[in-house]
Design a protein around this nucleic acid. Sequence first.
RNA 1: GGGGCUGUAGCUCAGCUGGUUAGAGUGCCGGUCUGUCACACCGGAGGUCGCGGGUUCGAUCCCCGUCAGCCCCGCCA
Length: 583
Amino acid sequence: MRSHWCGELRAAHAGTEVRLGGWVHRRRDLGGIVFVDLRDREGLVQVAIGPGWSPPQTMAGTGALTAEAAILVRGVVERRPAGQANAEMATGEVEVHATEVTIVGPTVTPAIPVGRVRGEALAAEESRLRYRYLDLRRPELYGNFELRHRLLQRTRRELSDRGFLEVETPILTKPTPEGARDFIVPSRVYPGQFYALPQSPQLYKQLLMISGFDRYFQLARCFRDEDQRADRQLEFTQIDLECSFVGPEDIYAVTEAVLVALWQEAGATVEAPFPRMAYRDAMARFGTDKPDLRFDLEIRDLTARIGEGSGEFLRAAVARGERVRALVIPGGAVLSRKDLDALADDAKTMRASGLVWAKHVAEGLTGPGAKALGAEALASLDLAPGDLVLACAGRDGVALPALGRVRLEVIRRLKLEPKRAHAFVWIEQFPLFDRDLETGELTFMHHPFTAPHPDDVALLATNPEAARSLHYDPVYNGVELGSGSIRITDPALQSLVFARLGLSAEEAEHRFGFLLEALRTGAPPHGGIALGFDRIAMLLTGGDSLRDVIAFPKTAAARALFEGAPTGVRQEDLDVLRLKVTV
RNA sequence: GGGGCUGUAGCUCAGCUGGUUAGAGUGCCGGUCUGUCACACCGGAGGUCGCGGGUUCGAUCCCCGUCAGCCCCGCCA
């Protein structure tokens, strides 16, 4: 049917007879001559239908060439007349003089525009998702998927070349009561019993290590029934990998190699090894476990400088054992009262009681913080004219994340210039356990198979909350790219961790007996990582929503607008499963 | 589960302090036009102001509820 792509035609093709297939991007009907921008996935080319070369019936049919109709064009590539080249088009030196035009896919008026005029806004995302097949025709969106494809292929090649074996693991698996909510799939054969979709292939890959596969990877689909975010979907793809006889350094090295390769695939040059930062330091300096290190702004601790010269409420906070932390923002004094109020609101959404601000202006220090912080605290900050101080008092668990959020908002509002374009960092030495704020119970920070830091094993018995783990996260420009760890391979230690998490021996046996059993059969030391592939694709396309790199994504409310999932099912289908709906 | 923003023509938006016939651009339809590339020009059609209720002489506008989309908190082993 076709001889060439629309987007590949150049001056060198002049004189060539071509057959093209594509969609009518735009039509310009000048009466005696009609121009059609014809689009396929490789680009646009101008087709000219004119009396010098197009037969009368082709001339007569141009009215039916409506936007987004699928057509076949036969014609000859010609250089455009002098002065008529379009420098903005890759194919702008040529046009195709049509000798035959066939409408193979007529169209109604598209519900959303594809070939937009310059500067025209995108249709609302709701419409774009409803008419996804039209939105995906946009060259920008197609380009995202072309890159995504290359990233997938490159991942396979890099890992395969390093001896990793791609293994597929089940989609129908066992429910896991801990962690994220499972999607549950009823069993017809065993009424009343259920499979779950995997939150990750975690246990399977550990079993593969015990099986001696040594190096595994998978481009794994994972499912978590949790509320959505711009950077979180119900179903997503991980680059999942695991290796045997390794420590953290080995995993860092292979992860860095993959990431450097993927960035290179997208045209960016980045260097390994990545710097490292302890979780504690990341929290203290940046208020988050995924610091954006393109920017230097760091949180300072003023607690020791809060004294007699400080405001009553800050002294009271310190007396309660809280800490006072502050950000100094060079040039931040330009922020308006409205900006500062908005920043305080941001802090409050993170459960902080508020923000205290002070500006260093020509006349000296202004703002509530000028008095409240006190001369000693302010002097310790070495403020320069134009600086802004934002301080927050509270427990570390509250004030630090609040200032972390404020830091990002300040960067956004001031449109600060990044110090570097690519800021990778490994966050490591995470605590092994976390305290559930609602129940007060000990819970795991990563997952219950994460190995304790070798120096902290004794703490499991005495002070488990202080124990660090061999868990690590690669972070890029403030985005968590993934998460990994060295796993527990000593069955006794695994049982002890289960016990610390409040699982009885019976429960542990019931849920994870197969793992404990496998660990007793010669388990090699092993560890791995899972990288969020969709997020990587999003970052490398320059996007800020996963929906632009997933072909058929769900909305924030977990609906598929295109096909209309989820929906009810027929009663007879439920009867087979012996299920009853009560809503 | 909680908070915020949004919903007016196919699409993007405007619509004053509640007022009589709800507008613009684009797209669409018809017409003129042989070098356009946001073609130009002339004419036309197109509206459940998301949905339901309330207040009012009168609601796109105010109030309550609800649905949908987006963002955030919680949640995300």
